[in-house]
Amino acid sequence: MDVRMTVNGQPRRVAVEARDSLADALRDGLGLTGTNLACEHGVCGSCTVSVDGEAVRSCLVLALQCEGSEVRTVEGLADGDRLSPLQEAFSAEHGLQCGFCTPGFLTLLQQALDDDPFLDRDEQKLTELLASNLCRCTGYVGIRRAVVRAARAGRGEPPAAD
């Protein structure tokens, strides 16, 4: 059967089985392999994407549950070859090392910044949000700095002085 979704702004129709997760549909059906699957039970956050304006685990959502939904994956962040401010900030602040968790963090944090451009001013809230996803390389320090940098850039403020 088919599921119709708007993926990164484009209307798409994907043939799926009922048991396919949204991640399966994105990766296997649409070739959007930027969304990584790792634990496949909601713990690690590698597969995070936005569905209708909320960051969710695409391994714990069936593709068929997304009929008519707006989906944004990591492929939807950059403008052609131009990285988004959040992606630039991840690069500038070394917010990644191996990079496997990065698509999940980028989609999680882009949604959070869309919802709250002042996210960086509530350190506790940011900590709780970052704890949603697992990164085993960075110790989260670079990722946290990247969010702060991106939030400041989004407000037209210069990067924070060290």
Binding site: G42, G45, T48, E54, A55, R57, L108, E128, L129, S132
Partner: peptide
Amino acid sequence: AAYVAHPPIRAR
């Protein structure tokens, strides 16, 4: 609610 899993799980 703040103790229920984490934000992406709480969203669904």
